[in-house]
Design a protein around this nucleic acid. Structure first.
Lengths: 212, 212
DNA sequence: ACACGTCGGGACGCAACCGTACCGTCGTTG
DNA sequence: CAACGACGGTACGGTTGCGTCCCGACGTGT
């Protein structure tokens, strides 16, 4: 690299945020529409209404583009999640997950990338950072607190607990893609709490049919 | 169509089973390697060591090819699954699922196609026939018998039960892709049984820590 | 033994996409 | 106010895959 400092880009020679934003949005839409496998830079550029060059100036490759944008998008809100009871935490977590997976883009992009991760080490690594690690963190806090309160046995294994917590809801929303019927989440809280070995709480009455 | 009956193909003019088989195998491998999105007929032909024509003579399109072969492959063995207890049935089912998802091809193809199903109605319909319907059938039998034995409450909802049964194991094997540690399946049987609301059986001792 | 007719294979035209090079444009900096 | 320099966009060659057509090869049925 040259030691002399060039003058910093300025004026028209600076990346325009509006275009960057348009590319990000278009990428997510394309990813949802055709999946990572069929994703093409040209289609992203078309959808964003920009030129391919605009994309290549910002990201070096298709993989780079997807990784950066997906990672950034996943760095969103994570629930505070400290209601004081295991069931409360579970209920909050499930609502957050259900809300996230309701997003039509997310519900298509996430399973797609997770499948792609099985054959693409870079995607795998990124998803493990932004998804699995976060789950471990949230799940870990949830379980640890429940153990401290005496709601869960002390020898609860975190990995297995996470499978139990995330698996059913993910299956229903992302794989089977069945609707969430009234009371489903409430029942799920009970079931998962029981499955985790929650200290024999009285099984609450099955979710009462909603009045409305 | 002509009313006159042509002589039936014979001799060299009949589809050779060996080639059909080679195409089937190559398709599965390609599907696992690149996914449905990137799947190309040319690559399948190359891998099978046949010409594209050989494929087009047998299937009309890429979609047709995938649907027929995947459906046929999924029409495999399904466990008898009538051990007399809920836990026995669950244990058997989990072993069967774990065995199936251990197959490296299956563990890549299934999540890939499930993700693709979210945007391709034909794939969605096919998978619902060969996967979901079968799950409903197996899960239905399992739950029904457990209810009859008094092991599960009578108002158990089948859909929610299936989510609980399949979700955690699928998540671990196909999504998180973590190994099955010793005793994992045993613990999962307990957890899922408890989650289903199994009539307070004594929680079996947690899988004893392995000596190693 | 011959004719039949589909077989598998190679070649072709067409379309899409990749990544790059080039070009005129534009706002800031000195 | 003039020069700078990256901007966005178009155009390009190369690659890949699709779906089709034509060809000689081949084994069975007459």
């Amino acid at each position: 690299m040259t030691t002399e400092k060039r003058r910093a880009p300025a004026g028209a020679a600076v990346l325009r945020d509006e275009i960057t934003t348009a590319i990000r949005r278009a990428l997510m839409q394309e990813l949802a529409a055709v999946g990572y496998g069929r994703l093409s830079i040209e289609a992203v550029a078309r959808r964003a209404g920009v030129s391919k060059t605009a994309i290549y100036r910002r990201w070096s490759s298709k993989l780079d583009l997807v990784l950066e944008i997906v990672a950034a998008a996943a760095h969103g809100k994570l629930p505070a999640l400290d209601t004081g009871t295991l069931r409360g935490d579970l209920a909050l977590l499930f609502q957050a997950v259900a809300h996230a997976l309701r997003h039509p883009l997310a519900s298509q992009i996430i399973p797609d990338l997770l499948a792609e991760a099985a054959r693409n080490p870079s995607i795998d690594a990124t998803l493990r950072q932004v998804l699995h690690a976060r789950q471990q963190e949230i799940g870990g806090r949830l379980v640890t607190r429940a153990v401290q309160r005496g709601e869960l046995p002390a020898d609860t294994e975190l990995d297995a607990a996470i499978d139990l917590i995330v698996g059913p809801l993910y299956w229903r929303l992302a794989i089977a893609r069945l609707p969430l019927t009234d009371g489903y989440l409430d029942n799920l809280v009970d079931s998962v709490a029981a499955g985790l070995g929650a200290d024999s709480v009285l099984p609450r009455p099955r979710a009462a049919p909603m009045s409305g």
